[in-house]
């Protein structure tokens, strides 16, 4: 469905100053429909800020973020955070809330919320208060909530960083299946194994700048910059 757009979202020379330091420094990145992108970089390199700026949570100090059109409207987007924030209501109602806010009326709202829960295998927990679910279940619920909004682009900021290996595998499986359906995945991770498993391409970011964009299979064998190869060796280059 997204095939007609030449690009979904683009950052052009985006700088973001946070508390006096430059978190993003003239970063540029154009995301076309298609591959799964994993943003890598050292702590503090600006990965999360990049995602938040693209998503619209942080306003650029300089430069622009532009959204491409899909079917004559701006591309839809959603974001999943490291720690899911669930409202004090049932799992199903959490999805219903997101749909209601985005103008989805009944009866579609209930239908889509139930479908989203089924999509991540949480149907059995639909009536359970969301905040008493386990970390993994909450993250899957967050994925379902994001998915229910039918985003063309889904940002994920360290979605498994707080999860145990079992829950991590579940979440990865859900992300992969979203991608297979055509949702554009843009995620950050600290987990290089996860990056290998999920990435089609790697965007490497260093000191607030996008320094490299390489197909994943090549990046892990032959990174294009010294910083990236040092990063892959597990060394901090400063």
């Amino acid at each position: 469905m997204a095939e007609r757009a030449s690009f979904l979202v683009e950052a052009r020379g985006v700088s973001v100053a946070l508390g006096g330091t430059l978190a993003l420094d003239r970063a540029s990145l154009r995301l076309e429909p298609g591959p799964r992108t994993v943003v890598l970089g050292a702590n503090g390199a600006g990965k999360s800020v990049l995602l938040r700026t693209l998503h619209g949570l942080i306003a650029p100090t300089a430069g622009v973020v532009a959204w491409g059109d899909v079917d004559g409207r701006p591309a839809r987007q959603a974001m999943v955070f490291q720690r899911p924030v669930m409202l004090r209501r049932s799992a199903l109602a959490n999805i219903g809330y997101a749909l209601a806010v985005n103008g989805v009326a009944e009866p579609q709202r209930s239908r889509r919320a139930a479908a989203a829960l089924a999509r991540v295998g949480l149907t059995a927990l639909a009536g359970r208060p969301a905040r008493v679910l386990s970390g993994g279940e909450q993250q899957r619920l967050a994925l379902a909530r994001a998915w229910s909004l039918e985003p063309e682009v889904l940002f994920l900021d360290e979605p498994t960083a707080s999860l145990d290996p079992g829950a991590t595998a579940e979440v990865e499986r859900v992300i992969a299946s979203f991608a297979a359906e055509g949702t554009r995945i843009v995620m950050t991770t600290h987990n290089l194994g996860q990056a290998r498993r999920l990435a089609d391409e790697i965007v490497f970011i260093h000191a607030g700048r996008v320094t490299e964009r390489t197909a994943a299979d090549r990046f892990f064998v032959q990174p294009g910059s010294t910083e990236a190869s040092l990063f892959l060796q597990g060394e901090i280059p400063w």
């Binding site: 938040r52 959603a78 974001m79 955070f81 924030v85 209501r89 909004l149």
Partner: peptide, 21 residues
């Protein structure tokens, strides 16, 4: 804040949400 903004919730719309939560 971040989650609600991400979902497209305005500050005004967030008021009843927060009160209820």
């Amino acid at each position: 804040e971040e989650q609600l903004t991400s979902l497209g919730v305005s500050r005004l719309r967030a008021v009843p949400t927060i009160l209820w939560d």
